[in-house]
Design a protein around this nucleic acid. Structure first.
Length: 760
DNA sequence: GCCGAACCCCTTTTT
DNA sequence: GGGGTTCGGC
């Protein structure tokens, strides 16, 4: 590669730390990149630098991300920066890259050539069927939990044989299910998400030629969001790097919020040990937020122990204070948000400049309700994605069955959708037959349809339908195939008969699927040419490519261009994004930090989540909590989040509610100030950093305590059940009941007079 | 076998 | 409170 004559564009816009990371010699680097410090920028410029200045071939670069969005953004920005074709460069998600390898080396990996990817939903269904096939009860062995366990094993690179001798009865059953599940996957040619990674790892570790090939090829491995890697991903990268490859890992331990799905922050420290000579570069200058917002974030995160250590700073101004609002309830909170949004919109903000972040998805409902009433256009992220929709999965099941008759998961789904008179009893019998002779459902149906009694004819007809479709569509373009499948299987008619708005949307989605298929159509001659041109690139037939796309990229949920909406999402979903104005709602104990996090003592991750939320804001941040909130249909009284005390008080100003709002549930026009009296609030005096009074909840100000002098949320001890937290009160006087969540004994409802509870 | 009613769960989620 | 699943009647 000819080095660029002028490297100015690669480094001119970088600050010293960024420049150091970008222009470092090709050795191991760990870049600790604080929020908003130009992490992606460094990654992109680093790749460009390697190619344009170090003369590295794009072929020897492997760049890995977690999401497709991050991968395509990276690709786009590199292409923008240097005028070099990088088509052949491996930039992608962990799963995408693993998939690529497995398509190229399916034989060595021990997979079927036409293997398909099992999504999370299908995986649970399959595990459930496996549990039942082992004559275990799926109540005693909840499929979701077992699936989670299996995935956790895979993410630690553990196969059943590594677990066989360990453990108690429960574990032995788990291992039994894991083993049977693996067999089921193998038989139907299915690979789940974790399996993609595990296979690719084992392939790279155990097959010498393949290991040598990729080690020779990938001399430069770059990883984004390194704090989110799990054990398996780490091990895989390590195998690929070997002795010669250099690692360039970018991450932020303070933004590690996915430990619950296997992410290991420790990998950052491990990297330094496993890759000798790793130099650490810290990016601490923030280009996103105001000084005030950063000060709040820094103050908060400083409460965590176990940090690699970093302090964000900015040379932009202090900006406005953070506004904190104490709402009566979730409706008042939502109205506060809507009102402030309106002010911003009447100012010069676009809708899309504004975002509402919350801890749990359930919180979006009320916000939505109020936004609709306020006529503020909004968009919720994190709903069902396109390829996860029922009607889409139905249609895909048929396509997959055309592709691979042994795909039991698709058989199960397609066989009676729409209803064909093949019900639970017949299917149970069919499963037994298949199990007895270790064949797929398709084979079992083919061989033994006659044994199915009344529904035998229906089953035979179904088999014929699939076979006929196969013949008819042999030379058809993919979109035509899809169209025909939707028509001939009766799916379209099925959804046409359904009434309501949703049914209409479903028909539209099916049409959308047909046009999506169109973009995967390729000419066989062109494919052959591509395959011979680049042997390191798997060339997929249109159907395989389409099905893979459906599994690996479950559909964009980005607002379309020109769509100017306020954005709603969970704090988790907000990671990596930024907005001029951010509202974080529901900042209450029990919700944020969540009850569970408190119980499990996992406050640090919860605090990091708040840190992530705060650092999403560029210009203005609003925080709010509700004193009363309906949770699962029950009113609960909440206290402001413990994290609020950890934000430096001078950053926050408490905004008082408008006077004259009815206090819900009390029916009086009592002005707020009268029962809020005495609340010191934030930023209203007192030395910075000094102990501040916590805002009192309604409970506290209205006589406060529940019957017996206990508070909601209070820790109590019961002579028999041990320690717990008060969830709710019911009634008063002698018959007052109290609901307590005990640490070990679960939730109990007790009559207060007899409970003999002791406050802690 | 099909459909409506009771029942049960309930943080966060990408691939 | 709401959505998915299972159960029971037809």
């Amino acid at each position: 590669m000819q080095p660029l004559a002028d490297i100015t564009p690669l480094v001119a816009s970088l600050n010293p730390a960024q420049k150091e990371a970008v222009t470092a010699p090709p050795e191991h680097r760990l870049v600790l990149a604080g929020a908003g410090s130009g992490k992606t920028r460094v990654l992109v410029h680093r790749i460009a630098w390697l190619i344009a200045v170090e003369g590295v071939s794009p072929l020897s670069i492997l760049a890995v991300t977690f999401t497709n969005k991050a991968a395509s953004e990276m690709r786009g920005r590199i292409e923008q920066l240097i005028n070099v074709p990088i088509r052949s460069m491996w930039v992608g998600t962990f799963h995408g890259i693993a998939h690529r390898m497995l398509r190229l080396h399916w034989k060595e990996a021990g997979l079927a050539q036409n293997f398909q990817i099992l999504d999370a939903d299908d995986q649970v269904r399959l595990v459930k069927r496996v549990i039942r096939s082992l004559d275990l009860s799926d109540e005693q062995w909840p499929p979701k939990m077992v699936t989670g366990w299996i995935n956790a094993q895979k993410e630690e690179a553990r196969r059943p044989q590594h677990l066989a001798d360990l453990g108690d009865f429960t574990q032995r059953q788990y291992v039994r299910i894991y083993t049977a599940y693996e067999q089921a996957c193998a038989q139907s040619g299915m690979v789940d998400f974790a399996e993609l990674l595990l296979r690719a790892f084992e392939l790279s570790r155990d097959v010498p030629e393949i290991q040598a090939h990729y080690r020779r090829r990938f001399r430069h491995i770059l990883v984004d969001e390194f704090q989110d890697t799990n054990t398996l991903q780490y091990l895989w990268l390590k195998v690929l790097a070997g002795d010669q490859g250099t690692m360039f890992a970018v991450g932020d331990d303070d933004q590690s919020i996915y430990s619950w799905r296997g992410a290991r922050v420790e990998n950052m420290v491990r990297l330094e040990k496993d890759f000798p000579g790793t130099e650490v570069v810290r990016l601490e200058q923030n280009y996103r937020s105001t000084g005030t917002i950063l000060k709040a974030a820094n103050g908060l995160i400083a409460k965590n122990t176990n940090r690699l250590g970093k302090n964000l700073w900015t040379d932009s101004g202090e900006g406005e204070q953070i506004q904190l609002y104490a709402a009566f309830n979730e409706y008042d909170e939502a109205e506060f948000v809507a009102n402030r949004m309106r002010e911003h919109i009447e100012g010069r903000s676009r809708h899309s400049d504004l975002a509402i972040l919350y801890r749990s998805n359930a919180q979006s409902r009320v916000l939505e309700e109020i936004l609709i009433r306020a006529r503020i256009p909004y968009r919720i992220y994190g709903g069902l994605r396109f390829f996860e929709r029922q009607e889409i999965k139905d249609a895909l099941a048929y396509l997959r069955l055309l592709h691979n008759r042994d795909d039991d998961t698709s058989f199960e789904r397609a066989v009676n959708t729409p209803a064909r008179g093949i019900g639970a009893t017949s299917m149970e019998r069919l499963r037994e037959i298949a199990r007895a002779s270790s064949v797929s459902l398709w084979m079992a149906a083919k061989n033994a349809a006659a044994q199915l009694g009344r529904s035998a004819g229906n089953v035979t007809q179904f088999l014929k339908l699939i076979d006929d479709l196969q013949h008819e569509t042999r030379d058809m373009e993919l979109s035509k195939v899809t169209e025909l499948v939707i028509a001939r299987t009766g799916l379209r008619e099925h959804y046409r008969k359904e009434k309501g708005e949703q049914a209409e949307a479903r028909l539209e989605n099916l049409d959308e699927l047909i046009s999506a298929a169109r973009s995967f159509e390729t000419d066989p001659a062109a494919r052959a040419a591509a395959a011979s041109e680049n042997p390191d690139e798997p060339v997929l037939d249109p159907l395989t490519a389409f099905l893979t796309h459906a599994a690996l990229e479950s559909g964009e949920e980005q607002a379309g261009p020109g769509e100017d909406c306020v954005q709603l999402m969970t704090l988790h979903a907000a990671k990596g994004l930024e907005f001029p104005v951010v509202f974080i709602v529901g900042v209450e104990n029990g919700l944020f930090p969540s009850m569970r996090a408190v119980d499990e003592g996992n406050l640090e991750e919860e605090r990091r989540l708040f840190y992530v939320g705060i650092t999403r804001a560029r210009r203005k941040l609003y925080l709010s909590y509700a004193e009363i909130r309906r949770v699962h249909g029950v009113e609960q009284i909440g206290a402001p989040s413990m994290f609020l005390k950890e934000v430096p008080s001078e950053c926050v100003v408490e905004t008082r509610p408008r006077a004259g709002i009815l206090r819900p549930g009390f029916g009086s026009r009592e002005p707020q100030s009268s029962y809020r009296g005495g609340y010191g609030g934030y930023g209203s005096g007192g030395a910075p950093g000094a102990a501040r009074p916590l805002p009192r909840s309604i409970a506290a100000s209205s006589g406060g305590l529940g019957p017996g002098g206990f508070r909601l949320g209070q820790r109590v001890e019961h002579p028999k059940f041990g320690e717990g937290t008060i969830l709710s009160f019911d009634g008063d006087g002698d018959r007052a009941q109290i609901e307590v969540k005990f640490r070990d004994a679960g939730v109990k409802r007790l009559v207060l007079g007899f409970a003999n509870l002791r406050g802690l």
